[in-house]
């Protein structure tokens, strides 16, 4: 991403942040100069006190615009779709493209309706769900082909030209966000029945639009400005302020080791999670730990291993050389 474009983006997204603040009526303004120069990392904020699920529309605005933007993203599906071996699981959403109430390869965002009761009051909360764009996304870091990558701006993006659809990213995602479409992708040209099974799809934070200096579709389309994007530090600060103002809660700050998506809610996420039944394409909102953290210590030992080798090699060699020298001095036969 060019610097020019990035600064353009920052300006626009900042404006969006500021407008969002005004719309929230929280009376917070961030002076333009406060934007951290050179901070390319972005974050998004989803304010659940603002999202109303678009009651006047059949499909929420964020969902329909996302569908529209990505309508032609998936190429034509092979017919018939090769049946993988030995597990014969084919996942084909190409004939159910219209589904909008869960994540599918054709639907990267959906809105969950939560009926909660907190403090004796009933409340309806709408929760837009999509990829969280984690700070340490296992889906990207351990993709065997690096088909999934976290960019400097924080967006985690799957390259559909490189993805084999093995669904490893889905397996390591605490929310199982990526969704598979079989019958498409590079695997068709290699061993379609034996390796791979399609391409994984998910929200890419509208990386192309970001690069072009535009806002992600869902954020631009939200009539309530419930979603914002901006420099990470500011979005984080804003989330804190809003949560404080509404005596509410934040989700996404610590979950899975931190993410670039912060939900702010007047209702606790434990309560919201209680309304969510984890199902395929419908993530819940548990306080997820980052499982990869279990490997961090050993990973550090790997990075130190060359030093262990250097220390042992140098010490061993000089020890043996000095012993050889000693033996020569002592006139011993050199047989050890």
């Amino acid at each position: 991403m060019s610097k020019e474009r990035l600064s353009g983006l920052s300006r626009r997204s900042f404006l969006k942040v500021a407008t969002g603040v005004a719309a929230a009526g929280a009376g917070i303004t961030i002076p333009g100069g406060a934007r951290a120069a050179g901070d390319k990392r972005l974050a998004t904020l989803i304010d659940l006190s603002l999202c109303d699920g678009c009651p006047d529309r059949e499909v929420p605005a964020c969902v329909s615009v996302c569908k529209e933007i990505n309508r032609d993203k998936i190429p034509r599906i092979a017919e018939p779709i090769p049946v993988p071996w030995p597990r014969k699981k084919v996942e084909d959403w190409s004939k159910k493209r219209e589904v909008f109430d869960r994540l599918t390869p054709y639907n990267f965002i959906y809105v969950h309706r939560a009926e909660v009761e907190e403090g004796g009051r009933k409340k309806t909360v709408f929760v837009p769900r999509r990829c969280m764009h984690c700070d340490h996304p296992a889906c990207a870091t351990i993709c065997p082909f690096s088909a999934n990558h976290k960019y400097e701006n924080g967006a985690v993006v799957i390259d559909q030209e490189l993805c084999f659809g093995g669904a490893k990213c889905k397996a390591v995602c605490p929310w199982e966000i990526p969704q598979r479409q079989s019958g498409v992708g590079i695997y068709l040209h290699i061993l379609p029945n034996l390796a791979g099974n399609g391409v994984m799809y998910k929200c890419d934070l509208c990386q192309e639009r970001l690069t072009a200096g535009k806002l992600p579709g869902c954020i631009e389309a939200c009539p309530r400005q419930a979603m914002l994007i901006g420099p990470r530090k500011q979005i984080y600060a804003l989330a804190e302020e809003r949560a404080k103002a509404m005596q509410g809660y934040i989700y996404g700050k610590k979950e899975n080791g931190g993410t670039a998506t912060l939900y702010v809610s007047p209702v606790s996420f434990a309560a919201l999670n209680g309304t969510m039944k984890r199902q395929p394409g419908r993530p819940d909102m548990k306080a997820e730990e980052r499982r990869m953290a279990e490997t961090d210590k050993m990973g550090k030992a790997v990075l130190q291993a060359p030093l262990y080798g250097i220390a042992a090699g140098v010490a061993g060699a000089f020890l043996s050389l000095s012993r050889r020298k000693d033996r020569r001095k002592g006139g011993a036969t050199d047989h050890e």
Partner: peptide, 8 residues
């Protein structure tokens, strides 16, 4: 790494 250095 030990191998390289020790024998080197």
């Amino acid at each position: 790494v030990f191998h390289l250095l020790y024998h080197g």
